[in-house]
């Protein structure tokens, strides 16, 4: 009867375009993007400010990359839920991110249905 309220999401991606795109996709589906970052070094601070339900994380970023950021985040907050959002050419990095504890990954170009499926299932897993 009632639908599950949207998730509060932090989006980290160096491309403004991707951030906008992800924000639109997520917010159209009833989630809320509560924080955005353009580099991996912002991830932990963003997480601590907003305590989001979910983080979407690009892997290739100019200053601090996604893998390093992921490791730092999960080191400090093992319960954080991270969905990696990267391109297929990064398969090695994606495998590594999964090994580090990323909850799921979505390939770019992002297919909305897949993103939202991943988000919904990650949320359900958080309980």
């Amino acid at each position: 009867m009632s639908t599950r309220a949207g998730a509060r999401v932090v989006v980290v991606d160096d491309a403004l375009f991707m951030r906008r795109h992800l924000r639109d996709l997520l917010e159209d589906a009833g989630h809320r993007v509560v924080g955005e970052g353009s580099d991996g070094d912002q991830l932990v601070a963003l997480y601590e400010t907003h305590r989001p339900d979910l983080v979407t994380l690009d892997l290739v970023m100019p200053n601090v990359g996604g893998l390093e950021a992921l490791e730092a985040l999960l080191g400090a907050h093992p319960a954080a839920t991270v969905i990696v959002c990267s391109s297929v050419s990064d398969e090695r990095s994606i495998l590594e991110a999964i090994g580090l504890g990323a909850r799921d990954y979505v390939l770019k170009p992002v297919q909305p249905a897949k993103l939202l499926d991943a988000v919904a299932k990650a949320l359900r897993a958080r309980g």
Binding site: M1, S2, T3, R4, A5, R51, D53, A79, R126, G127
Partner: peptide, 21 residues
Amino acid sequence: LDEVDRLGKLVRTLHERVMGL
């Protein structure tokens, strides 16, 4: 804090259910 986080989620879900009713 992580546990409280989870508790918060449960309370929120419960809230949604009750509000749904």
